[in-house]
């Protein structure tokens, strides 16, 4: 009897193994485990087996049945997977066909410069200040030590709305606005749009952008200004950037300086961008003029400060090798998408 069962198991396993498809597997199942299957028949015939043998035989049959069932499930799965694989092979696609990606847009180079500069100064503890573009002449000039009669106030350079209201010609207006309303310590960056009476050409635009920086506190020195701008230049333009301060004149700072950076295109060797000088003039700066502090109700004997400002377009143009400012305001998408 035991031999018979063992034989059935052996044969059945053989057939399961050899089953090529779902049908032949099913046939094997019916043949051995079906109602009239070989193994079922044995179970049914248990009555004819000696009493003491029954548990052992029963146990054996059950074990074999479980094993066969398990193997059938396994085989079924294998067959299915094989069939699926065949189907999948036929589903091959051309992976080199174009994707369905959504086109990305782009950030304007002006914003890029402003954003990068903002991030650097936020890291240094500066806040961002913004203010009106249509401004009182008082904030654009008077409070900034540029009294009536000063050449900078000419209608040729500045666009006026009335005698007292104008389109700000510099973001320095924010110096006066912030100082007037804030107790030191003041540490701000003011990016913004400014206006000058310039005709549009490759290097001029009546509308352009500036970033102004202002720090006012006790014990602020000109060395601090230099140190701050060095950190800025090296973060923004690269660690190997050198800076140079040259004396200059602005009405609202004293002492004043212009800052050059070693040319970030040729690294100081001399090229088109730096006109062979190895240096590029990038900003004006200086210690806040005592008159400006006093005009904004800050005691110049107690507090000192520094300020700096630069044109965004010029930096964007130098950085990206853009040779015509008009490109920045024409907004041709073929230009914009390059950034």
């Amino acid at each position: 009897m035991k031999e018979e069962i063992a034989n059935i198991e052996k044969n059945a396993l053989e057939e399961i193994k050899n089953a090529k498809d779902a049908n032949s597997l099913n046939e094997a199942r019916v043949k051995y485990l079906g109602k009239k299957g070989e193994l079922t028949t044995i179970l049914r015939g248990m009555g004819t087996i000696a009493q003491e043998e029954r548990p052992k035989i029963g146990e054996m049959v059950n074990r074999v049945r479980d094993n066969l069932e398990e193997k059938i499930v396994e085989a079924e799965k294998n067959i299915k997977n094989k069939e699926l694989l065949e189907k999948l092979t036929k589903e091959k696609i051309d992976v080199t066909m174009p994707s369905k990606k959504q086109e990305l847009g782009s950030i304007h180079p002006i914003t890029k410069v402003i954003d990068e500069v903002k991030e650097i100064f936020i890291g240094l503890g500066y806040k961002i200040a913004e203010g009106p573009e249509i401004e009182f002449a008082e904030y654009n000039f008077d409070k900034l030590n540029t009294p009536a009669g000063h050449p900078a106030r000419d209608i040729q350079d500045t666009m006026y709305i009335t005698d007292d209201i104008l389109l700000r010609s510099q973001t320095s207006t924010m110096q006066a606005r912030v100082m007037e309303n804030t107790k030191p310590p003041i540490k701000i960056i003011c990016p913004g749009t400014v206006y000058r009476s310039d005709s549009v050409d490759a290097t001029h635009s009546p509308v352009f952008h500036q970033i102004e920086g202002l720090v006012v506190d006790r014990h602020i020195t000109m060395s601090d200004l230099k140190g701050t701008l060095k950190v800025f230049a090296q973060t923004y333009l690269g660690e190997d950037t050198k800076i140079r301060f040259r004396p200059h004149h602005f009405p609202f700072t004293e002492p004043s300086a212009e800052m050059d950076v070693s040319c970030f295109v040729c690294k100081g060797k001399g090229c088109n961008v730096c006109k062979g000088e190895g240096w590029i003039e990038i900003l004006g700066c200086g210690m806040v003029h005592p008159n400006v502090l006093e005009n904004c109700n800050i005691n110049s004997k107690e507090y000192t400060g520094f300020a700096f400002g630069f044109g965004v377009e010029r930096i964007a143009m130098a950085k990206h090798g853009i040779d015509d400012m008009r490109l920045l305001f024409e907004n041709d998408v073929r230009f914009l998408k390059q950034f």
Binding site: G125, I128, K187, V215, D217, D224, K226, G227, T228, V231
Partner: peptide, 17 residues
């Protein structure tokens, strides 16, 4: 001007942002 040192502000810390 080139002899001016580069120092960083030694003042009250401010919160930027």
């Amino acid at each position: 001007y080139d002899k001016l040192e580069s120092t960083l502000i030694s003042a009250e810390t401010t919160l930027g942002g």
